[in-house]
Simulated assay, not measured.
Amino acid sequence: MKCILVFACLSLALCLAAPAPEAEIVNLASEVNADSYNYNFETSDGTKQEQHGSLKNLGPEEDALQVAGSFSYVGDDGQTYSITYVADENGFQPQGAHIPQAP
């Protein structure tokens, strides 16, 4: 009886430690220019991301990179989580239904 319990525990531990199958890229596109870029990709596990960036003139001899994009993924709970964001001179500003909002 003791051997069966030990075997069952070891089997469970091995199953939980097994690596998840790797996702494959099913779509990929990108374009890089001197003053802007954009890219998007999608993987076989449902992950998607797109982003575009460009230089923004903040004043004489002062440029900043302005980035906007989105990504989504399927969580361990089976729910799809989506984020849209802007990153500029004001910092990273994400938005998503599951992100708590400040009062």
Rank of each mutant, 00 (worst) to 15 (best):
M1E: 11
M1V: 12
K2T: 11
L5F: 13
V6A: 14
F7I: 09
F7L: 13
L10Y: 03
A13G: 07
A13L: 14
L14P: 01
C15D: 06
C15E: 01
C15F: 13
L16S: 01
A17Q: 04
A18P: 04
A18D: 08
A18C: 00
A20H: 07
P21R: 12
E22S: 13
E22W: 04
A23V: 02
V26N: 04
N27G: 08
N27A: 15
L28K: 04
A29D: 15
A29R: 12
S30G: 07
E31P: 07
E31N: 11
A34S: 14
A34L: 11
A34Y: 09
D35Y: 08
S36M: 07
N40V: 06
F41K: 08
F41W: 12
G46V: 04
T47G: 12
T47Y: 15
K48V: 03
K48C: 00
Q49F: 12
E50Q: 02
E50T: 00
E50H: 09
H52K: 09
L55M: 14
K56T: 05
K56E: 08
N57G: 06
N57P: 00
G59K: 01
P60Q: 10
E61H: 09
A64H: 01
A64V: 11
Q66M: 08
V67M: 04
A68R: 06
A68P: 00
V74H: 00
G75K: 04
D76S: 15
D76W: 00
G78Y: 05
Q79N: 11
T80G: 07
T80L: 11
S82Y: 04
I83P: 06
Y85T: 06
A87H: 05
D88Y: 10
Q93R: 09
P94L: 03
Q95M: 08
A97G: 06
I99T: 08
P100A: 12
P100M: 12
